[in-house]
Amino acid sequence: MNIVVLIKPTPDITKVKFDIEKGTVNRASTNLEINPFDLYAIEVAKRIKKLFGGTIVSISMAPPQAEVALRDALARGVDRAILLSDRRFAGADTLATSYTLASAIRKLGSFDIILCGEKSVDGDTAHVGPEVAELLRVPHASFVTQVSRFDKDRIVVESDYGDAYYEIELRLPALVALSRPLMFLGETVEPSIPKVGDVLRARRAKIEVWSADDLKDVADLNRLGILGSPTRVVKSYYALESGREAKVVRGIEGVSTVLQALKELGVL
């Protein structure tokens, strides 16, 4: 099986600093790590490889400092990590990002399955998986909570549609965007902690860096980066200022205050 994993290096959302005035993110304030949902994609990739053999290639589009995250991916069991990094990729929205990732997959050649996370903690769109699938003209399922069958040419997954969960059969090659909690053939999938030996090996491993020129044969360079992005942020601001001034109460007094409030709010 040729397994592709899409890994987005993202800032640690609990540590990243926001410029509250400007509503922007200080990207230098924390390291880039693997998007938490993508850890599940790596884990599933390893299980597929165990069953069928093959190779796991990860693709990431990110600035050069994302290398640390890619070494982490290698330590976790990815065989080959490719970093798409070039000024010309900068400013990409989800459409341009997906186009770039899909082009890189084309350049790799054939694939059986592409695994990615349900969404990223920074972009938070859940677009990239379905868009990559569309650009490569393969079926996909998003918000996948279970992989219940895996054959050489088809798989069965459970996908959250919103109102209920549905069972879907996809013909391979296909793309699957993984949610959590997640099951794979009846077993719960949790990201595992890499072994020290693997971490050391990954530290010396090679990260392939591809530039826009490397995609020349498979991509229209005008569709990359900001050039290829139809959406523009015109304004942003910090959202977590709540403006609420809590009335602080203690112990038993709390119960009567809450009781009173619930009456006023019409709950009681």
Binding site: L95, H127, E131, S142, Y161, G162
Partner: peptide, 19 residues
């Protein structure tokens, strides 16, 4: 909804629209 968020990006990518 999860269904809408699964469908809309495919449509957008197909016609090259921003989403």
């Amino acid at each position: 909804t999860p269904w809408g968020r699964s469908l809309a990006p495919r449509v957008a990518a197909s016609i090259g629209a921003g989403l």
